[in-house]
Structures are given as C-alpha cells and as structure tokens.
Nucleic acid binder design. Structure first.
Lengths: 207, 207
DNA sequence: TTCTTGAAATGACAAATGTCATGATTTTGC
DNA sequence: GCAAAATCATGACATTTGTCATTTCAAGAA
C-alpha cells in the first residue's frame, strides 16, 4: 500500500513515516509539507492513500483535497488534525474525504488506513453529532457542561430549537410562561446570545 | 479484543469466528443468533465489540442494538449485512452504531474492527450518499425553487439563519426595517412557519 | 429551629416581531 | 404607451419576547 504524507510539521511527517513503515505492506512513497505539494505529489505518485494535515500554511489540506478529488474521484484522502473542528469535519465530509483522524489517536492510524484502503470510510466519534438530520433529541453532555447549563436549561433549549413559543414550552414542561422567559433570559446570558433565534442556531451548530 | 458475533445464519457466524480468530489478539467470546440473544450475551460478556447482523428473524439487530446502546452508551456495535439499505444505514447511524460493513467486504472486516476498537467509526462507501445534505452556506437551488422563493427572499432567510435582527438585516441589504418585516411575513406564509426561529430551524434542516 | 439556597412564579416594562392595508416607484411584457 | 407585475416603503396594531425586581416555597445545612 503506497502512502503519501503531507504535513507542514516535518517532525510529524517523519514520525508518521516511521510508524507506518514499521508495518509490513505499508510504504511511504512521498512526503510533502503543504497543499500545493500534496497536489503535485498526488499527481506524480498516485498513492493508494494520501494522509494529509487538514490545516497547513498556504493552501490548506482541505483545498488541496478538494482539488485532488476533483481530478481523481477515486482518490483516497485521510485527514489528520490535532483538534476537532466543526467546520473542518463537515467540509472534509463534503469534499469526499475517506476519513478524518485526530493525530492524538495515533494507535488507530494503521487500522484506519487499512480500512480506508479496503473501501471503508473512517471518522472519529465527533462526526456523527455534526450531521444535521440525524440529530438526537438533546445536546451532548460535552457541549452542555462546557457552558454550565443545567438539565432544565437543556430541556428548554431543546424546545426552542424545536420551534416552540414560550407558551408552548411552558405547557410542555409544566412551567409558567414567565418562568420559561426567565430561563431563556439566563440561558442567553450564559451563551452570550441575543435572542431565541440565535439560540436555536447555536443548538444546531453544536449538536 | 473480545468479540461477540450475532447472526441468524450459523454458517456465517462460524466462518466469521474462524476468520477473526486467525488474527492474534482477537477472541470470539460468544455467538448468538438473534436479537434477544445479542442483548443477553452483551450483558453477560461485555465484549469490546459486538458484531451483529442487522437483519434477523425475531428481534432485528437494529432493535437489539438500540437497546444495548441504551443500556451501555459505550457499547461498540458493528453491523453486518448482505446488502445496503437506506433505512438501515441511517437507522444504524442514529442509534449510535460504530459501523456498518457489507459481508461481501470481508477483507476489510479486521481493519474495521480494529479501527472501531480504537474509537473510530467505520462506514462503507454507500453511507455518504445516504446522509442528508450537510449544511453549507446557502440553501440549495433545489430547495428554494420548490418553495417559490425569490432571490431576495433567500438572502433574507440566510440573514435570519445567521441570527440577525430585522434592523440588522435591513442595514445589510439596504432595505427599511419594515420591508424586511414584510418579506419575512411573506416567507413565513409560504413556508407555513410561524416565526423567525422556526425559519432559522427550517434553514438548518434543509441545508 | 433558623438560615440559606435553588426552583418557580409574578408583574411591569421596553423592545422586537409579525400582520395588514395601503401607497409609491420601477420593471416588464405586450 | 399602458397594464400588470414586482419592489420597496409606511404606519398602525396586537403579540411575543427579553429584562428585571421581587416574592413564594420547599429542601437542606447550620
């Protein structure tokens, strides 16, 4: 399996090369350090998999990836990044990347590479929550604790995000309308938002 | 890595067992043949991964999976199936399964198992096309024409979905605030919605 | 017990929102 | 040119929304 690695941190790319080549059957055939090089290397070497940092100086991995996939629909690109970012995850999905892995999670790199090689798509845990229509009914614990939101507040946010008016929320949760207003007021303050519409938007962006 | 296999075709489950145990580090600790057994086996054995047919007589793999994940949020379930089905794929995703693999694709089974074990999610190529559109920056043409929305109306909707107030939208688009209100009123009527919050929600659900 | 804390409610208020009727202006088709 | 459209604007109005100060009440902690 031929692999090209592209990362603007040389240290990362050479460590990756070592890790990968410890495995028989894997061969790192090229190393690059920016988006432009990624495109050139891909064209020249046609690797089975392109392992690329999503964030790089100059042309980002995403841009490069989009271009490469445009040229070769079959291209198998696995993105690497050090942190999970909403925007990136969704975009990576959109351009048709085969996967997305956090660098921290280096043990899962080889199995993921193989799975991708064999036609699977591999994504970290985070991806699922970022996909709109598959939302569950409530915000993830991780998101809510980060903002000190109580259980009840979450319930209210969820109702707002379902498009209910204060009166309707009051009926649903057996509270008075005024109480619901108070809750929302507090929530908006906590989240630094202005009105319920922004709150609903927040919900959909963090779910 | 401890694995439990559940498939109503004994032939399949025993072949799988053989394939898996050829790999060092993998141990099939239990085999079941229906959803009910899957639940019992999971409770009793707490395997690292549950490899389960999605379609089975009696309780389906999907139902069993939902129940198991309900009991143990950490449960790692990888579904197996012989054909790709829209319903199933999306449902599997929704209940929180870690993956979905076609039986035909047996070479990718082991790498996929490992990737899942290490915290990834693995899905076949098909999945992507089945996932409702991920949101980008504007409504798709298809969506807007379906509702007879004009160019200007789309602009307004977009601003609402960005969380702007009427006054802000007016400034952005060089209109009076009243005009913006009128536009929104018409849009809400067209889309059968009640207020701007529902409009923002609509936007994020159709984008 | 008394004190404190948190959840829920109230009422008053200003601001934002949505609806409606109407009118001015511009664009477009014929 | 003229009529029929969009397009943009107003003003009046009822409702909803968000803020704030204050109160009630119950459960714990002292």
């Amino acid at each position: 399996m031929h692999i090209v690695i592209v990362d603007d941190d040389k240290l990362v790319s050479s460590s990756l090369k070592m890790i990968l080549e410890a495995e028989t059957g894997l061969e790192v055939v090229g190393i690059g350090s920016n988006g432009q090089e990624a495109i050139e290397l891909y064209r020249a070497l046609k690797p089975d998999i392109l392992l690329m940092d999503i964030r790089m100086d100059g042309m980002s991995g995403l841009e490069a990836g989009a271009k490469i996939i445009e040229e070769d629909q079959q291209a198998k690109i696995l993105f690497l990044t050090t942190f999970s970012d909403n925007e990136y995850i969704v975009k990576a999905f959109q351009i048709g990347a085969k996967g997305y892995i956090l660098k921290q999670n280096y043990e899962s790199l080889i199995p993921s590479l193989k799975a991708v090689y064999l036609g699977q798509r591999v994504f970290g845990e985070e991806i699922v929550s970022k996909i709109p229509t598959l939302h569950g009914d409530s915000l993830r614990k991780s998101d809510l604790t980060a903002f000190n939101l109580s259980e009840k507040e979450i319930q209210i946010i969820t109702q707002v995000a379902n498009g209910l008016s204060n009166k309707e929320i009051a009926e649903t949760l057996y509270l008075s309308e005024g109480t619901v207003r108070n809750y929302i007021s507090v929530i908006l303050e906590k989240l630094q938002l202005r009105d319920r519409t922004q709150l609903a938007i927040f919900y959909y962006k963090h779910t």
